[in-house]
């Protein structure tokens, strides 16, 4: 009878144990059970390549869209556009803004991309996250025009391959900044 009672008690309280809150660090001399430690590397900001790809697509879509519509280099919209970039991408974008203002050029239409593919998605030594992608930039629906509205650029190949690199600004962030667009000098896989 007593055995049965104890058994019942034990079973009844086991579930209570498992539902117990996670232990808090304490200075007790006796070890307390802790939840399984996280893997020793930095927990991935993007758990899978699919997740990274979705985030990169969203970030680049926004970047192109803001780039198409950004106003003069002293406008808020320009600042917002530049704020999506860092490093050499930032320098490159800023140069273009200056050049276009000097020349009186502007963008028309929409800049598109497709076929984005993840090359790598990983934590950097400083615990920020880097995603490298390939994509096809599609300039067929956009143009660069001068004050008179005439096209100033001749694009024989409206679809061109690019490598685009994204980084998170700090280690727990999921925000992606465009950091560089290294030249793709291989054959054009987009045409």
């Amino acid at each position: 009878m007593l055995t049965a009672f104890l058994l019942l008690l034990a079973v009844g309280t086991l579930s209570g144990c498992s539902a117990a809150p996670a232990p808090t660090p304490s200075n007790t001399a006796v070890p307390v059970p802790t939840a399984t430690a996280a893997p020793t590397e930095t927990p991935p900001v993007f758990a899978s390549n699919d997740e990274a790809l979705a985030a990169a697509k969203a970030a680049y879509t926004k970047y192109l869209s803001l780039g198409d519509s950004a106003g003069a280099t002293d406008s808020d919209s320009w600042e917002e556009y530049l704020s999506l970039t860092t490093g050499t991408e930032h320098d490159g974008a800023a140069q273009v803004g200056k050049l276009m203002e000097e020349k009186g050029w502007s963008f028309t239409g929409v800049t598109l991309f497709d076929s984005m593919t993840i090359q790598s998605s990983r934590a950097l030594p400083d615990s920020t996250w880097e995603i490298r992608t390939y994509l096809c930039l599609d300039l067929s629906s956009s143009d660069t025009v001068n004050d008179a509205g005439d096209s100033v650029i001749k694009n024989d190949e409206p679809r061109s391959p690019m490598i685009v690199v994204f980084v998170t600004p700090d280690k727990n962030s999921r925000q992606l900044l465009i950091s560089e667009s290294p030249i793709w000098s291989g054959s054009n896989f987009c045409s």
Binding site: T88, E89, G92, Q95, F113, L137, P182
Partner: peptide, 8 residues
């Protein structure tokens, strides 16, 4: 590097 806007 070559950003999309530099291409454009």
């Amino acid at each position: 590097d070559c950003t999309f806007s530099q291409k454009k």
